[in-house]
Structure formats: C-alpha cells, structure tokens
Design a protein around this nucleic acid. Structure first.
Length: 310
DNA sequence: AGCGGTCAAGTTGAT
DNA sequence: ATCAACTTGACCGCT
C-alpha cells in the first residue's frame, strides 16, 4: 500500500531524472537499414528491456509514496509506424513479452499503482483530414492494447486543433468518440490544453458522451475560460465514475513570464489548488525533475500537515 | 568516448 | 511560404 497524503494519489510521468530507470526507443530511419528479421529482433529486445524498466518504475513508486505512473507511449517503439510497425505476434520474444507485461500489470495492481497513458500531440480525433483521424485511431488502438496488457485505466487525449471553427471540430470529435470500440472508449479521457480547448469547451462534450474529463489546472491558468478553479474541479470530478485524474505543474519562470506554459523542474505548493487537497483523486505531476520533484512535493506536504496539526 | 544533429506523426502562429 | 514550438530526451553517425 502506498503512502496517501491529504487524500491525493500522486502520479509520476514517464521518466526518471536520477533513478537509473530508462525506457529505450528506436529510430525508424536507423531500423530501415536492416532486414525485417533484424528489425524485429531489435524491437523485441527493446520491448523486453522496457518491460523490465516498467517493473522497476512500479517498484520505485510503491516504495516512495507515489501512487500512479504514466507509461511512455513509446514503450513499444514504432508500434504503429507506417513501414516499421509490427504486431506483437511478429516479435521473436512474443511469449516472454506477454509474460513480462502481464507481470508488470499484476505488480501494479498488487501495490495499488494506477497506470495511465497520454498519447502525444499527433493523436487527435477532431481533424477534418480523414487520414489523420485514421492514423490516430490506429495509435489509440495500440494504446488500448498495451493498457489492457498492464491494466492501465486511462488514456488521456487532447481536443486537437481548432481549424478556425472549434464547434465544428468538437462535433467531429464527438462523432469519433461515439464510435470507439469498447476497450478504448472505457479508458479514453479528454484533457484541456493551454492554447485551444478549455474546460468550458470540453466539459459539455464529456457530459454528453460519458467520456471523463482530465482537468489540467496549469493549462487552465494559461488559457482561462471564465470558470473558477473550484467550479472546473467540481465539474471535472463529476464526469468520473472512478477515481478522477487531474494534472498539476508550475511555470518555469513564474506566472508573469513571457511563457508561463513552460514547466518548472519542481512544483510550487502555492500552485496546488486548496480545493484539491482532501479529494480522493489522482494528480499527475508534470515537473521536469520527475521523481525528485515528487520527493520534494511529498516532503513539503508532510511539513504543512505537521504544522497544521500543532 | 564524446559531441551534436536528428528523430513518424499535426497544428498553430511567428517571421 | 517556411519553420520553430509544443516537450524531450535518447539515439546514432561521426570524429
């Protein structure tokens, strides 16, 4: 059982700064020089190594008061690449990979480490370009496949582009959401971003489709919509039929800098909304110092808890 | 061994 | 029209 502080389950995102836990990737241009057998051997070895890294990441979280871990989308490198892409059954170590990733899923479940995914900016369901949507659906299918493997319960997606007409784009997004296969639909969540889609834009979509809303308070502060943090939090939490997921970060050079969107190495406790403190929620910490930032944050929370109990 | 250019994908906005 | 930013290291070719 991990160490829950103030009602919040704290989550680490993808990487470690100091801890020697590394997830490897492969480059398509490099692999393209080899024959298919060699490509699959290299990919297979990388995926096995990444599975071991995932086990290590879960163990680290369990031992350090961290209750959630976001898995890097590239844990199966180039899985959906148009020319290098592959099926799991094609990999020479398929059976061992299967065992290892299911083992990681069991380890996460046993130690109560929530696993999540967050596909990158190339994955979106609002594009007017059918090819972009088709490739995104394939990418999401890959995420759902790995999520099922390891028991991850959230795949967080942004709204995508605005294309000069956000309402039309949101209607395309809703149409795609309505026809997702169940394994994906059951895991997908929508998150506000810092340039285009605000909580006020996405909450109605979430309510109408039943897809939960991931509230990123840093994005909301960069790109406000008239909703207060308290109101956005309340409405976001209400979209979840399981533990809600929220995102927290602090600005690299302060809120008055030219670019407050950039993430700081650490979390300033002042950026944690007071109304989050006692909620039964998962908060993923997007701080560049990774596990060091979590360590500092947990220590700072301990200190304030001690002071308030005097 | 170390350095630096490059890396699959989409969209926006600055120049 | 072109290209950096987004976010981000890690990889790989070259010296």
């Amino acid at each position: 059982m991990h160490n829950r502080k103030m009602g919040i389950r704290w989550g680490l995102c993808c990487l470690f700064r100091e801890e020697p836990i590394r997830f490897a990737i492969r480059q398509a241009t490099h692999l393209a020089r080899f024959d298919r057998v060699r490509q699959l051997a290299l990919l297979s070895a990388t995926i096995l190594a990444n599975g071991q890294a995932l086990l290590a990441a879960i163990a680290y979280c369990a031992g350090n008061g961290i209750g959630a871990f976001r898995v890097n989308s590239r844990i199966f490198p180039l899985k959906t690449h148009p020319s290098i892409g592959y099926r799991l059954a094609d990999l020479p170590d398929h059976a061992a990979i299967d065992r290892l990733y299911r083992q990681a899923g069991r380890a996460a479940a046993e130690q109560d480490i929530r696993l999540t995914f967050h596909p990158d900016q190339f994955t979106l369901l609002s594009s007017p370009d059918a090819g972009v949507t088709a490739r995104s659906l394939e990418e999401l299918a890959y995420h759902a496949e790995v999520a099922e493997y390891v028991g991850a319960d959230v795949v967080t997606l942004h709204g995508g582009g605005g294309y000069g007409d956000k309402q039309a784009a949101l209607e395309r997004l809703m149409r795609e959401l309505d026809r997702l296969p169940d394994p994906l639909r059951d895991r997908l969540a929508l998150e506000n971003d810092d340039r285009i889609y605000t909580p006020a834009d996405l909450l109605p979509v979430c309510v109408s489709t039943g897809i939960p809303f991931v509230y990123d308070v840093h994005h909301h502060r960069c790109h406000p919509d008239g909703l207060s943090i308290e109101e956005a939090t309340r409405r976001a939490v209400a979209t979840w039929r399981r533990e809600p997921l929220l995102h927290l970060s602090s600005p690299k050079d302060g809120w008055n800098s030219p670019n407050p969107r950039a993430h700081h190495d650490f979390i300033d406790l002042a950026d944690l909304p007071d109304c989050w403190r006692d909620l039964p929620i998962t908060v993923e910490v997007e701080a560049k110092a990774k596990e060091i930032a979590l360590r500092h944050l947990l220590a700072a929370l301990d200190k304030t808890a001690q002071i308030s109990s005097l």
